[in-house]
């Protein structure tokens, strides 16, 4: 699984972009999006997914079940 951003809730504050250890987040068309291939759910970096912890809007950075769970290397 990777994380994804619920576009309709994103305030485009960019806070998550700077916190992501994998540079998986960028702005696209006014809101921010996560590139699933780059997202490691922060495993190996931090205890909690950084985008979830910093986002000012609850339930905006959520698990994307379309992707298999990340395996720590």
């Amino acid at each position: 699984m990777a994380y994804r951003i619920v576009g309709s809730q994103c305030t485009s504050c960019s806070a998550c972009e700077a916190e992501c250890p994998n540079q998986a987040i960028s702005e696209r068309g006014g809101t921010f999006v996560i590139e699933p291939a780059k997202c490691t759910e922060c495993i190996g970096h931090f205890d909690t997914p950084q985008c979830v912890a910093v986002c000012p809007v609850d339930d905006t950075c959520v698990i994307d079940r379309n992707y298999p769970r990340h395996q720590a290397p």
Binding site: T11, C13, A15, E17, V54, P56
Partner: peptide, 14 residues
Amino acid sequence: APACNIQCNYCNRK
């Protein structure tokens, strides 16, 4: 500077 590192009860980050 759009990002913030705290949450205030008098703020709505929209």
